[in-house]
Design a protein around this nucleic acid. Structure first.
Lengths: 363, 363
DNA sequence: AGACTCCCCGGAAACGTTTACAGCTATCGG
DNA sequence: CCGATAGCTGTAAACGTTTCCGGGGAGTCT
């Protein structure tokens, strides 16, 4: 019950005071030794010994309060189950590790309250910086991003004038690449399986699809458009609904998960891919290469966007005064078996050809 | 240059002192109002106003130092690209969210130094608790786990007497389920594609496979065993090597990613699945259901293990004095098309049957 | 009117660390 | 032999918050 600071906190864990007392030195000396700066040989020995004896481990929170940094960086995405975010995460992690920091990931599940809460919590100094890739953006959200106490970089479309570092791609152009390719290989009735229209990527892809058709003077048939969410099961179900009312000869999907669902639905309905229906996904993830046939897919440069976002973040952490920057990564199309130009002799009853499966297998 | 505490830190961000000064009240009153506890209507108005004017946002680190909690929980896994960890993460998140905390995930990439560093950093109070699922365990590692200042729960096998909360499964028994099933459906030359033997799960699966064969009096043929790592590409390559030197009529894979790689290799080599080669994966992830044919897989109850681990963690956070506990989740086998009992008339040249693809499609 | 209760407020301590500063000793150069 | 210097040490402040505690004012009950 001394009036001085407690040496042993109720918690029972030793603090720097504990080891200082045990070593018979001041907390300043103890701290210096523990940080490897200064100290006489004798002091070093005593402190090291005391620390080992009591099992001292420094409290990172207290250290951060003092040093104003945590050595942590966070990434918030909607769904870690989507391989596109895994790719992005890997690219970010590689950059972030180079700065001696560690990356933490949070899956928001698309729940907007969750995402805002995370921003409000993590960004309040638990991390040195944050990369977020929101699929829905509200005003509230934007406000939380803008006045975050900690540097934030956004991956994805954002209001044109938001003063936030931003790395984006042009997914409308990406849709154009897919449609152009399908038209060029002779497809006429191109269907589209999209994610929710009230999301930023969903809306952009919808606009891109319609614009691309218009550019080719292909009349729009609403029955060839179906909407689910960005998941596998939704893509499969949406495709089933679409097939029940229309006969597409090609299908564009808003991401690879949906495309895999579409492939499942198409094969289950007895359609051959690509002979009867050509299939193109989006994001160009590893998943596309794991399928049979391998899926064509529009790359939105996710790894590259992640890399750039991480670099922007590190720069801003180093210098908060930088003006807001915006970078753009162009989409590109990877053509694989699922939309190969129609094969030699696609007569019904032929044994399935195997070469589409073996071509383009990559590590 | 006052001798009193700076009202405006160099950083420029307002603190509770800033808003207290501006509102003309003490920091105690300001803090109370900001936390919604007490305060006269007039005080509340003044503080709220001041806070809004200066754009005050509380420093979570300082708050945590005081309150001794962060409201964060971390999960460290080897590879977020593996859907089994995504499932586990979802289950954990559901439980953790119920306690008002948020979950952060870190992918260690199997680098042991990384994992230990993470433990040493995060566990030093950045989070209220931690769930780790290591695939390699060194002494150093174990030591870091045991004397973590923060509660830790381990998912996976651990030395028998380690005083750490632990949720495990019996993957040796899981291998037995797979082998029993294949033997029961008439398979004789059962191959095995495993992950690295120097990992805990790799070693357990290897032992389980050998034991299961022995129990059926099937002589072991080392040419039917191949090792890669736990990834898709490695599974594909390993299967190619295996097929180059042996003729299995069934293949057990150490996880679903490997199984997908094996499926790719089998089809590329012209083998029919399941007619020529039956295929069984492990982990029973969504990926198994996304394939054609859908893959049989041994469930190791990953979601359940995650759920239990999260519950153990929350209990321990609430009461650090609990004795170390150990829980076990039994494996089970999901039989799907890839190992269906041999089909009616598997003559070469038949058009591929479609019903294996449609059966068992689940949301 | 006085005693008691209740509520609000401000000062100060506390969380555990790092670090500026000043005092001390010992060594070295002149 | 004396002053400057270098190296080590301890005291105390600081990081930004929450909370204990005591004082004071207003209201109520007797």
């Amino acid at each position: 019950m001394g009036r001085k600071r407690l040496q042993e906190p109720v918690d029972g864990r030793p603090t720097v005071h504990t080891v200082a007392a045990r070593a018979g030195v001041s907390i300043a000396s103890a701290s210096r030794v523990l940080n490897g700066v200064g100290g006489s040989p004798e002091t070093i020995r005593k402190v090291r010994e005391a620390a080992a004896e009591v099992g001292y481990v420094p409290n990172a929170i207290a250290r951060s309060l003092q040093s104003q940094r945590t050595g942590l960086v966070a990434l918030a995405v909607e769904d870690i189950g989507n391989p596109v975010y895994v790719e992005m995460m890997r690219a970010i992690e590689a950059v972030v590790a180079g700065s001696g920091r560690q990356l933490l990931v949070h899956a928001t599940g698309g729940r907007i309250d969750n995402e805002t809460a995370l921003l409000r919590r993590l960004a309040n100094r638990y991390v040195d910086g944050m990369i977020v890739s929101p699929i829905r953006v509200t005003d509230d959200h934007l406000a939380a991003l803008v006045d975050s106490p900690v540097p934030v970089v956004v991956v994805g479309q954002l209001g044109a004038d938001a003063p936030v570092d931003n790395v984006r791609t042009d997914s409308r152009h990406g849709m154009a690449l897919a449609v152009d390719h399908l038209v060029a290989t002779g497809r006429q009735r191109i269907g589209f399986v999209n994610g929710p229209l009230d999301t930023v990527p969903g809306a952009a892809r919808d606009a891109g699809f319609r614009a691309a058709l218009a550019r080719h003077d292909i009349p729009l048939d609403e029955r060839l458009i179906e909407v689910g969410d960005f998941q596998y099961a939704a893509g499969r179900d949406a495709t089933e609904r679409l097939l029940a009312r229309a006969e597409p000869d090609a299908l564009v999907c808003a991401n690879d998960l949906i495309a895999v669902g579409a492939l499942h639905a198409l094969l289950a309905a007895g359609r051959r891919v690509p002979q009867d229906v050509a299939l193109v996904g989006m994001d160009d993830t590893e998943l596309a290469r794991m399928m049979f046939p391998q899926l064509s897919s529009v790359s939105l440069g996710s790894a590259e966007r992640g890399r750039r976002a991480a670099e922007l973040l590190l720069q801003r952490i180093a210098d908060a005064a930088l003006p807001p920057r915006r970078e753009q990564v162009p989409p590109s199309l990877s053509i694989r078996a699922s939309s190969a130009a129609t094969l030699p002799a696609p007569r019904p009853g032929d044994p399935p050809t195997t070469h589409p499966f073996t071509e383009g297998v990559t590590a």
